[in-house]
Structure formats: C-alpha cells, structure tokens
Amino acid sequence: MKTIILRTASDYLLPLLLLFSIFILLRGHYLPGGGFVGGLIASIAFVLHAFANGLENTKNLLRLHPGYLMPLGLLVATLAGLSPIFVENLPFMTGIWFQEPLPVIGMIGSALFFDIGVYLVVIGVSLTIIFTITESA
C-alpha cells in the first residue's frame, strides 16, 4: 500500500524536485540557494525515487553510475575556471559574462557554470555515498 502511493508520488516528484533544484541552483546568485543546496535537493529526489522504486530501478534510470557526476562536475567547474585564461587572458576563476541577462536566471557567466559544476558534484557525491551505504548495509 505504502509503496504504491510512494511510487506514484515519486514518479511525479522526481521531475518536480529536479526542476526545483535547478531553479534553486540558478537563482543562487540572487537569493539564498546555489549549487550546493540545489544539488542536495536533486539528490533527495533520487533518494526518494530509490526508496519507492528500489535502488536498481533508480540506477537504471541514471544509466551511468552517479559517481561519474563527480568528475563531470569537477570538469565543468574547471573549464569555467579556465575559460577566462583562454578567452581574455585573465586569471583563473575570473568571472566573464555574457552581455545580456536571460529572463528568470539573470546574468549568465562563468560563475554560473562553476555553480553548475558544484551542483553536479554534490549530486554525484551524495548519491554515491548513500547508494554505497545502502548496498552494503
């Protein structure tokens, strides 16, 4: 009984929570939030999904081991950090920005990409830790 409700709920909850987490991520530059909290929310979404549908299903949904999100995030962050060196010969991690702001998100710049990297790493880390512990419990 419990599982059916949960399962149905989580099917809707997963995309909703993910969207919310991306919102938190993007708005971080203006309001409380950012990559870290956003990442945590996204992982909670996956954890809930795993709780409802079983670990295997969630893993299948992700296709790749969540661990790969860590180097991916780090890479995104590194590239964001390196971009000023290549683009304008400015120091590592200098913010460079597109001229025009986008609606909802605001200004787009290397800092945002960096935050996306953080977001990805946090998801990767929390999912790896939780999955590993659950598997070996």
């Binding site: 120091p91 590592f92 991690m93 200098t94």
Partner: peptide
C-alpha cells in the same frame, strides 16, 4: 622574483 596571481581577478 616572487610571483602572485589574484584568482578571480
């Protein structure tokens, strides 16, 4: 001599 770089500029 000593080099410095200000990360983030």
């Amino acid at each position: 001599g000593t080099l410095t770089i200000q990360s983030g500029g």
